[in-house]
Structures are given as structure tokens and as C-alpha cells.
Design a protein around this nucleic acid. Structure first.
Lengths: 162, 162
DNA sequence: CTCGGTGCAAAGATTTTGCATTATT
DNA sequence: AATAATGCAAAATCTTTGCACCGAG
């Protein structure tokens, strides 16, 4: 894997460094999770050799670069820090179902994804990018439960008319 | 309209204040735009009576509350402040196509929206909420143009294998 | 050897919070 | 009168940046 990433970076005149390697390793080991920058930063200090392997600024800079280059997908949940996940090639163009209750992230598979893109292109002349679409709602397990409004004060009113 | 909103707030033991009225008025006058908190704050000072009608903290608190109550939809573009738009009842459940190039926001109509929700529920057992889905890509006018990677360094590589 | 990368600490930007005061109900 | 809301300024949070030094190619 490193070889291909190395080549990818080379295309952009970017260098492979120990810090970048360490971050990639973390991302790879955490496939399927969306890590906050802070998580990554902390994980950088708990390897075999207990010394921190990159500064927080480097983590930010690296994640920004990785995103631009397409190596990771960024997920920004409102009101919280950005989170990143390594984009494995077979996952390019997958989109996310994000549970508002438990935070679980499921991915839409290619068939649905392509279908969506086609429908939107046909109807709106809008080209959907590889940037993951975030679809919020309630997952299987949580779908009977309350939503964020409940947490605020009480049960939701059923709308109103202007 | 104020009456229904007043009732809605009453359900949650929330009060109608001059500040909230002023903010609602701005949101109403700017239907179709997603305003940043800062925009709203500034607009609050340029009415007929030139004095500021609410502090920035009040704007933040008000928008948070309006969102929880379902009065506005929040759109958070990555790397920039949250933006809000009044949710008119007939627009509940509309979703957004957001152009990465020019920032234009189009809405998906009910038919597409319902179709999407149905497909996702059938396939994934996932209940999509009223929370607007943000679909990123390139609008009609911009779809031939470059994307953010181009802005970064140069043309995109066509992917890589792990 | 060159130029991109790093670490640190300072600065920025956005948002939240504590608290005394004000105003809605 | 009770309690929610406000304004202000301070603080918190997340992220970016300047700069001197380091190290990959």
C-alpha cells in the first residue's frame, strides 16, 4: 500500500515522511472508524516507542493534504471536530448513513450510489462528486427512539403553518 | 406566521422576544439564502433604527434553539461557519445540492426526496430524518470546471490500489 | 544541496459560557 | 413575581500560521 501512496504523493511533489507514515498506519489500523484529529494525535504517542511521533500542527496539515489528494474522507459532524477515514480504493464513491442517535456510520454500496447519482444528474443536471454524501437519520437499532429535539426540551410538535 | 411560531415556542416554554422577532424577520426576508451567524448579527444593526438589536451570543443561542425546534436548517460547509435558513413548512424534507465551485444551493423536490428515503429504508432499514441531506458536486454551470484538488497542486491522479 | 516538512508557540476564527441585569409571561 | 433571555466579556475549542530548523529526495 505504501508504494502506491508514495507514488500518489510523488505526483503532487509531496514527500513521504515518518510522520505521514505513522498517520497512515493509524488510519489503516482504524479502517471503518472516523477519527478526530485529536484522536490521531493521541494515537501517535502510544506506539511501542512511547514518544510522540508528530505535532498537532503536522496532523492538521497532513490531514488537510490527505483530503485534498483523496486519501481520506472528511466527515464533519456539526458542532464537533472534523473526522477522517482512510479512503480505500474500493470504497471511493461510497456514501454515509449517519445515525444521529448512536453515531454509527453505515455506507451505501455502489449500486445505490450510482443510482442516486444518475437520478440527480438526470433531474437536476448536477454532477455528484466522490465527496461522500452524509445522510442523517436513525439506524435500525435507534429508529424508534427520540431525536435531538427531545433532548432539548420535550416531545416535538408536528409542525406548524406559516 | 409569528402566531404559529409563538405557539411552537410556547410548547417548549420558550419566550418570544424582540431579538427573536428581529432574527426571524431577517431569516424570512432572506428566504432561499443560508446566512452565517455573522451575517445575521450584522443585519441586526442595519434596520430603520440603526441600533444593534441583539448581541452575538444571543444570535448563537437563538440559532441553536431555532434549529433544535425545527425552525431553521443548519448547513455546515466544512471549514466555514454554520449557515442557517428558515424552514418553511412546505420545504420540510427538502434536501440540498451544493455546488463546490460556486456555492449555489439547489433543493431536491419532494418526489426525489421521498424516493431516496424509500430506497434507503428498504435497503438499509435506515430512517432518514427531516435534516437536510447535503449532496456535494458541481452544478450545471460549473460541472465542466476543476475541483478542489486542482486548486491544491495539479491534475488528479486516477486513483491507486492498496 | 534543495525545497518540502516539522515543531513550537502564537494567533485566528468560531462558538460557548458565567453572571449580573432585563423583560416576558 | 418567577424564570427565561440578554449582553458583555472572558474562555473554550478547533484550526491555522510564522519561522527557524530538519531531513527526504
Amino acid at each position: 500500500m505504501l508504494d502506491q501512496i508514495y507514488d500518489l504523493l510523488k505526483q503532487y511533489d509531496l514527500r513521504m515522511t515518518p510522520q505521514r507514515k505513522a498517520i497512515l498506519e493509524i488510519l489503516y489500523n482504524c479502517r471503518g472508524h472516523h477519527l478526530e484529529t485529536e484522536n490521531i494525535y493521541q494515537l501517535l504517542s502510544i506506539g511501542p516507542d512511547k514518544k510522540r511521533k508528530a505535532g498537532i500542527a503536522t496532523v492538521y496539515r497532513t490531514m488537510e493534504m490527505f483530503e485534498k489528494v483523496g486519501l481520506v474522507s472528511r466527515l464533519s459532524m456539526e458542532d464537533s471536530p472534523s473526522r477522517y477515514e482512510l479512503v480505500l480504493p474500493q470504497e471511493i464513491n461510497h456514501h454515509h448513513l449517519i445515525c444521529l442517535k448512536c453515531g454509527r456510520v453505515q455506507e451505501l454500496d455502489d449500486v445505490l450510489t450510482e443510482e442516486f447519482k444518475k437520478i440527480i444528474l438526470e433531474n437536476k443536471n448536477f454532477v455528484v462528486t466522490a465527496k461522500p454524501i452524509k445522510i442523517f437519520g436513525y439506524c435500525d437499532g435507534c429508529s424508534q427512539k427520540c431525536n435531538s429535539i427531545d433532548d432539548f426540551k420535550m416531545k416535538i410538535g408536528s409542525g406548524f403553518n406559516v
